[in-house]
């Protein structure tokens, strides 16, 4: 699942967008929706993100790729 972020220079999140957002409401994709919501909550909890002091232009747009395979292993 991919989430695109737009950040302020201090690391707070201006905008977060789920990129494969159509998949969220498809039947049989309940886990995907739960993961997406959980990831968004995690991002909100983590802000401001610890970001470098330099190069804002380079990292102000960021894409997070969440892979639940390892997380879900028992």
């Amino acid at each position: 699942m991919r989430i695109k972020l737009e950040l302020k220079p201090d690391g707070t999140v201006i905008r977060s967008e789920i990129l494969d957002h159509a998949r969220m409401n498809k039947p049989g994709q309940g886990f995907y929706k739960v993961l997406a919501e959980s990831a968004l909550r995690a991002i909100k909890l983590c802000q401001p993100l610890r970001v470098p002091t330099k190069g804002y232009e380079r990292w102000k747009n960021l894409q997070l790729n969440f892979d639940a395979r390892e997380m879900l292993q028992g």
């Binding site: 990831a39 991002i43 909890l45 380079r58 990292w59 747009n61 894409q63 997070l64």
Partner: peptide, 25 residues
């Protein structure tokens, strides 16, 4: 349920990334 994902690793990835393309973590 993912809770606090360690986003501090973002820092590391950004620091080593040299490309001008969108940074992916």
């Amino acid at each position: 349920m993912i809770n606090k994902i360690k986003l501090s690793l973002v820092l590391l990835v950004i620091a080593i990334s040299q490309s001008n393309a969108l940074i992916e973590v």
